[in-house]
Design a binder for these strands. Sequence first.
DNA 1: GACCAGGCACATC
DNA 2: GATGTGCATGGT
Length: 224
Amino acid sequence: METPPSPSTAELMRIYELLLARFGPLHWWPGESPFEVMIGAILTQNTAWSNVVKAIANLKAAGLLDAEALLRADLRKLKRLIRPSGYFNQKAIKLRAYVRFFTREFGGSVERMAAVDTAELREKLLAVKGIGPETADSILLYALDKPVFVVDAYTRRAFSRLGFLPRDVDYDATREFFVSRLPVDVSLYNEYHAQIVYLGKDYCRTKPRCAECPLSVLGRCKID
DNA sequence: GACCAGGCACATC
DNA sequence: GATGTGCATGGT
């Protein structure tokens, strides 16, 4: 079992610059308010963002992009509105559980939530049914501007193909890989994750398109 | 028509 | 503690 090579901060920043040059600044998250970002973070679980857009538009049109209104809404109605995002039975329950938590713990105030210590807040989020590590970290980074690096399936796939991580690497190890090498910077974390998602969507898929990949110049990507 | 998508909880061993 | 499985719509 050979040890994967350990890239330097400079190498990770080179990768970042290559992605940025290809995709341009993405300025995530695409949402009009922190509350909308939180809802989107749950709806996008294992789901294409294009489907989430439809669900959020439905919620918005129904006036449910609001904590109190969402909690008052009939469950069947909620399911119907978010149907395009898939897993709607589960996600309706998850949305309710999350918004109930948001209301109970912070009075539905983003400012009060953001005032809580980040590590403590992450633990609280993970205790909510339906909130796993990626969703928790997405909320912390993209809704609350906390310096938390978000990892997803694309991140693990791309960086294991680059030979930097074992193929079966778990969430926390992947996150540690980045935070131990990158400066703590909300803007960098924000943009880096977004860039990796674009890399994954456009090139580093299950069926990769390596020929046009912005990282092909590195000459180190190995599929499987 | 198969395959995939910005995961997660739960069952089973 | 690791591994497997159900959840569901919409685009390619």
